[in-house]
């Protein structure tokens, strides 16, 4: 293996400026987890199918296992650690996932939350079908998604100033 020099990357992570030297091949997920100790995003499949590594980059959802840290140079990255509101209260999605039992083992949850955040920013009041399609890049092995859908509906209602009403079965 040839020796490859490290190169500088500088980006904003959860509102904080970060500068590091990295090997170009450093995957963003490893950069976040190993360099910055932000271990919320997880690695579940490594082939960009499971979405456990999902973070928000400049307002879009990205699978950070299939992106080099250098590609995020200059970007603004938000991970689940930066999801809570500025005043320290939990984001409506964090609340919704707990209220609606939208998680079990918790491993997919950070990626699912970050995906849901962007989904709601693009579509503030999605239907069940739109939610299911919108989170189809995130696999969950525990919940069967039904309560995740409700959790996102709960958050959408709250963010829209409504109280969530569960649909009758």
């Amino acid at each position: 293996m040839s020796e490859i020099d490290t190169i500088p990357v500088s980006l904003t992570v959860n509102g904080r400026k970060v500068q590091r030297f990295v090997e170009p091949r450093t995957l963003l997920i490893h950069f976040l987890r190993e360099e910055l100790n932000l271990t919320g995003a997880h690695i579940g499949c490594e082939t960009s199918h499971c979405g456990a590594c999902t973070v928000e980059i400049d307002g879009a959802s990205v699978k950070s296992c299939t992106m080099f840290a250098v590609q995020a140079n200059g970007a603004s990255v938000t991970t689940v650690e930066g999801l809570a509101n500025a005043d320290g209260t939990l984001h409506a999605l964090q609340e919704g996932f707990r209220q609606m039992h939208g998680l079990q083992c918790g491993f997919c949850t950070p990626g699912m939350l970050m995906r849901a955040k962007v989904l709601l920013s693009e579509n503030p009041d999605p239907t069940e079908e739109e939610i299911r399609f919108g989170i189809a890049g995130n696999l969950c092995r525990c919940t069967g998604y039904q309560n995740i859908v409700k959790a996102i509906q709960y958050a959408a209602a709250k963010l829209n100033g409504r109280t969530y009403q569960e649909a009758a079965e």
Binding site: S48, S61, V62, K63, T66, V118
Partner: peptide, 9 residues
């Protein structure tokens, strides 16, 4: 094609 995250890239 693929899923929402992959479509952003």
């Amino acid at each position: 094609i693929a899923d929402p995250q992959i479509r952003t890239k």
